[in-house]
Amino acid sequence: MGWYILKRLLQAIPLLLGIITVTFFIVRLAPGDPMDIYLEEDRGQIDPQAIELLRQKYGLDQPIHIQYVKWVANVARGDLGESFRYRRPVSQLLAEAIPYTLQLTILAVVLDALIGITLGIISAVKQYSVLDKIVTLGSLVIYAIPGFWLALMLVLVFSVNLGWFPTSQTRSMDYGFLSFSGKVLDRLWHLVLPVFVLGVASAASTARYMRNRLLEVLNEEYVLSARARGFRERVVILNHALRNALIPIITIYGMKLPFLLGGAAIIESIFAWPGMGRLAVEAVSGRDYPLLMATITMGAVMTVFGNLLADLTYVWVDPRVSYEGKKQR
């Protein structure tokens, strides 16, 4: 297994190189001089020599291929440059933001798994029942609702009108004065709405997928065989069918990360959540190129590792896929 992980990690390197290359060239294709944005309007008043110095500082005075090589080398070293806007190292900004995004996405995945998988199973086992119809239709509808609108409506009802949850931020004003458990509760309280909005759409797609997968498995001959051997229906479903249906779900969760990150960009902006998504949006609206390049790259890198994790889990739980590559999926 160790060798296999190493092999997969090595295989990811060209992909990562591709990612930072794409990011670099898209941003460099940008019309206009990045310096204009850095200096905003007051260009005319600044000493041209100072501008030249700044260009040197950001490496913008060099030919593009040199800049590219430097960018790759810097990323490899973990140096992502300095934000135009915050005038701080981008890696620091990311290090502060990523934990917040992880909180949000991980909890969203947990919520998704709890609701999505459960509803999917119930719906498949009780195929054609009223509940099944509600789940299939409901999941489709919920999946279609745009997250930002759902977020606003929930804020309108639960924060503005009912006052149950805070409208935004990660903690209350009096956070500093709370006891430890009070602090934990306060943080969780602030997480409820954003996690729900992010997780519920994802849960809807899981429920649909789980239902279809389990229905497929229930039609397999080994399930019929298990029944023919006299096992109880509950045992047949939980032990013989469910595990088979759950294995491919792992891949689905691997593929979900990009959607969750995309969703986080919007949700974080609405809830003033200081995560990576909001950082990316800020970087875009402020044309903060170093920050922009870094957040987008980071999003892609996280996706790559998410998929890798899913693959490894798959190999780990499914006896048919061995990591010597005996059987190709």
Partner: peptide
Amino acid sequence: RIVDVIIAFPTFFLMLMLVGVF
């Protein structure tokens, strides 16, 4: 391989980057 690279980006992030640049 090019497709692999593009798919690695969260699509919405890719869109964000492009609307930021253009």
